[in-house]
C-alpha cells in the first residue's frame, strides 16, 4: 500500500511525462466551447483515433529511447493496409491470417531494410528511413495507381469499427482495447525486461553498452523491425476502420508519432522514456486535431499547429537537458 502511494506521488510530482497534462487541460477548456467536443461519441472518437497514433508511437518510443528515428512509419502504415487488403481480396487469405502475414512481412521487410542500412552500412537513421519512406510509398501508390483496395470483407471491418458494450455509456472500441493492451505490455517490457534495459543502455551510450557485452547491432535492428511491425498493424487497423485500404493514408503520420513520443517526455538524447508519457502525447495530438476541426479551424491551418507543437515540445526537451547539466 505504501509502495503504491509512493508510486502515485512519483508519477504526479516532478515527472516529465506529466508535463503534457497542463497543455492538454488548456486545450480541452478551449475546445469545450463547442458542446459536441465533450459528448460521449466525440470522446470515443478521440480515443479511437488516439489508438491509431499510439500503437505506432509505442514502437517509436522504443526507437527514440534506443537513440534512433524512423521516418518511414507513415508509408509503411499505408503499405501494410493495402497488402492486407490484397491478401484478403485477391489471394483469398482468411482475415486473421492476412493480418498476421501483412504485419509480419511488412514489419520484417521495411524494418529489416532500415536496420540493415543504419547498422550495417552505417547511414544516419534520418537518411535511411527517409529513403525507405519514399520506397514504401512509391511501391504502394505504383501498384494501386492511387486507387484504394475496396471493398474489404465484412468481418474485417468489424475490428476497426466495432466496440465492446456498443451503445452503452461504457462503450469501448476494440481498437482502444488493443492499444491499451499493447501499451501495458510494452511499458512493462521497456521497464522490466532485459530487452528493454538493453535498449535504454544503447540509447544512453552505445559504446558503453557494447563494451558491457550487449549485442548492440542486433538489438537496434530488432527495434527497427518492431516499429515497422507496429506501424503495419496500426495501418491495417485504420484500413479496417475506413472500410478501404488507401495507398495515400498516413501522410505526416511519422511526425504525429514522433511528436507524441517527444511531448510525452521521452528524451531525444536517448536512454530514457516512458510509454505512459507517449500515450498522453498521442492523446494530446489527437485531441488538438479533433478540437481544431470542431471549433472550425480550417484543416489547411492545422498542420501549422502541429509544427508549432512539435517545435515547442522538442525545445522543452533541450531546455530540460541543459537544466540537468
Amino acid at each position: 500500500m505504501k509502495r503504491v502511494g509512493k508510486a502515485i506521488v512519483d508519477v504526479v510530482l516532478g515527472v516529465r511525462e506529466m508535463g503534457v497534462l497542463i497543455p492538454l487541460a488548456i486545450a480541452m477548456v478551449i475546445f469545450s466551447s463547442n458542446p459536441i467536443f465533450m459528448s460521449r461519441d466525440n470522446i470515443i472518437n478521440i480515443l479511437r483515433n488516439t489508438s491509431f497514433v499510439f500503437i505506432t508511437a509505442i514502437g517509436m518510443t522504443y526507437m527514440i529511447v534506443s537513440g534512433a528515428f524512423d521516418l518511414s512509419v507513415g508509408a509503411v502504415y499505408a503499405f501494410a493496409g493495402v497488402m492486407c487488403g490484397k491478401l484478403m481480396m485477391e489471394a483469398g487469405f482468411p482475415v486473421w491470417l492476412a493480418i498476421l502475414a501483412a504485419t509480419a512481412l511488412t514489419g520484417l521487410a521495411f524494418g529489416g531494410v532500415n536496420g540493415f542500412f543504419v547498422h550495417k552500412v552505417g547511414l544516419p537513421p534520418m537518411l535511411a528511413t527517409l529513403a525507405t519512406m519514399n520506397i514504401a510509398r512509391g511501391i504502394v501508390t505504383g501498384i494501386q495507381q492511387g486507387n484504394p483496395v475496396y471493398p474489404l470483407p465484412e468481418g474485417f471491418a468489424a475490428i476497426g469499427q466495432g466496440s465492446l458494450f456498443k451503445g452503452s455509456s461504457f462503450e469501448l472500441p476494440f481498437v482502444v482495447l488493443i492499444a491499451v493492451s499493447l501499451g501495458v505490455l510494452s511499458a512493462w517490457a521497456l521497464k522490466k525486461t532485459v530487452y528493454g534495459r538493453a535498449i535504454c543502455a544503447i540509447g544512453g551510450n552505445i559504446e558503453t553498452a557494447r563494451l558491457a557485452g550487449i549485442s548492440t547491432k542486433s538489438i537496434s535492428i530488432s527495434v527497427f523491425i518492431l516499429v515497422s511491425a507496429l506501424a503495419s498493424f496500426s495501418g491495417i487497423l485504420i484500413s479496417s476502420r475506413l472500410g478501404s485500404a488507401q495507398p495515400n493514408v498516413g501522410v505526416g503520420y511519422e511526425m504525429q508519432t514522433i511528436a507524441a513520443v517527444v511531448i510525452g517526455g521521452t528524451s531525444l538524447q536517448g536512454g530514457r522514456g516512458t510509454i505512459i508519457g507517449t500515450a498522453l502525447g498521442a492523446l494530446f495530438m489527437t485531441t488538438v486535431a479533433n478540437g481544431m476541426t470542431l471549433i472550425r479551424i480550417s484543416p489547411f491551418w492545422q498542420q501549422l499547429v502541429l509544427g508549432v507543437v512539435l517545435l515547442a515540445a522538442c525545445s522543452m526537451d533541450y531546455v530540460r537537458n541543459q537544466f540537468r547539466k
Binding site: 532485459v194 534495459r197 535504454c200 543502455a201 540509447g203 544512453g204 551510450n205 559504446e207 558503453t208 553498452a209 563494451l211 558491457a212 557485452g213 528524451s267 538524447q269 536517448g270 536512454g271 530514457r272
Partner: peptide, 18 residues
C-alpha cells in the same frame, strides 16, 4: 564509454551483469 549518463548508480553498476 565507461558509464551511461542517463542511468542511475544501480543500473550502471549492473550493466554487464543485468
Amino acid at each position: 564509454d565507461g558509464f551511461v549518463a542517463a542511468f542511475n548508480v544501480t543500473l550502471n553498476a549492473t550493466l554487464a551483469r543485468f
